[in-house]
Computed example of a mutant assay.
Amino acid sequence: MSLRLSTVILPVRRWHEGGRDQWLRAERLGFHTAYTYDHLAWRSFREGPWFGAVPTLTAAAAATGRIRLGTLVTSPNFRHPVTLAKELISLDDVSGGRITLGIGAGSNGFDASTLGQEPWTPRERADRFGEFLPLLDRLLTEGAVSHDGRFYSADGARNIPGCVQRPRLPFAVAATGPRGMRLTAAHGQAWVTTGDPKLYEEGTPEQSLEAVRGQLEKLGKACAELGRDVGGLDKVLLTGFTPEKNSVLDSLDAFVDFAGPYRELGFTEIVVHAPIPDSDFAADEAVFEKIATEAAAQLG
């Protein structure tokens, strides 16, 4: 399988003031998928414009015709499986079956406390995700679902007619720990990583690559325990969070040199952020477009 290139478009621009144009450009450049973050606010963008993921993706679905669209990633921090399933089925319908749900357990960012709750401990996040994902899977594949769980409930929730994509839209599960890997093996069509966060500030590219190799071994073990071939899972790397940070967009050669070893590890998709001036994702627009149109051919 050839390496696919995708992009993340952060929802920081008004739709009629450049927002729509970014999604159209992503399609024109030939990206496989255009994702957006599903947060209420995020890091250094906290005090600036930030729009909702689902409405943004709905607008993008109506404006485009080919490119896949998705979240990278959604989490339980401010979502409930019942309402999320209804939104996803609607979004999959509007897009004509072009939606991928990137999903993970979440973290202690702004999403964790904006609704007024105390941030969950890592254990509780994992526990909630362990209930959230299987329930969401059922909600997207069954016509009527009831569930009385520790964290989430559903009472005859109807999701007719279901997804355009059958049996449901694909899940790209972000995970690094054993429980997350098992959930990926059980419910995922793809696995997502950003590398090892402990290496972001002071690690080396070589250490990062080795850490990801170790993550892949854990994923393979989780799949084997369930009798699943890990080769059937797409492997997605979201760039910008390894020791190279955003320097992978300094030039076409820099990106190819970065992506090649991950391609050799078996990654099927690499995701780059669309440039945002005066931010951690600042990059030369011309280089970004050159990577989009030329890197895949060089990587094979």
Rank of each mutant, 00 (worst) to 15 (best):
R138E: 11
L140T: 06
E124Y: 08
R68Y: 03
A85L: 08
I67L: 11
F51G: 01
T141S: 15
L140V: 05
F51I: 02
G70E: 05
V73M: 03
T33P: 02
I103E: 08
D111L: 02
T121G: 12
F132N: 06
T100H: 09
R123D: 15
A60Y: 10
R46G: 00
L101Y: 07
A112G: 04
E27Y: 02
R66I: 02
T121W: 11
E131C: 13
S107V: 00
A144G: 00
W120A: 08
R138V: 07
L84V: 04
E118S: 14
Q117Y: 01
L136H: 06
F78S: 00
T114P: 00
H32V: 04
L136A: 13
W42N: 01
R98F: 02
I89R: 01
S107W: 14
W120G: 01
D93S: 14
R128F: 14
V145H: 02
T33S: 09
V94I: 15
T64H: 05
L133E: 08
D127T: 08
F31Y: 14
L140N: 08
A61W: 09
E118F: 07
L84R: 07
D93L: 13
S107G: 14
L29E: 13
G109C: 12
K86E: 15
L57G: 10
T71M: 03
S107I: 00
T141V: 04
W42Y: 11
P122N: 14
E87G: 10
L72R: 00
G109P: 10
G104V: 03
R68L: 01
I103D: 06
L101H: 07
A41V: 06
G143C: 04
P55S: 11
G130R: 05
R123A: 15
H80C: 02
F45H: 05
I103Q: 04
E87V: 13
P134M: 02
P122E: 14
G102S: 06
A59K: 02
R43Y: 11
L136Q: 07
L136F: 10
L115K: 00
V145G: 04
Q117A: 13
A144Q: 13
G116H: 00
A85N: 08
D127H: 14
L136Y: 09
R98A: 11
R123W: 03
T100F: 04
T83K: 03
G102A: 08
L136C: 10
P119A: 07
A63I: 12
T114I: 11
I67M: 08
W50K: 01
A144E: 15
F129W: 14
G130D: 12
G30D: 09
I89C: 10
T71Q: 03
L57T: 03
Y37G: 01
G96A: 02
R128L: 14
F31N: 06
L139M: 03
A144C: 09
R123E: 15
R79W: 10
F110G: 03
D93Q: 13
A62D: 06
S75L: 01
H39I: 02
T141F: 06
F78V: 01
F129C: 04
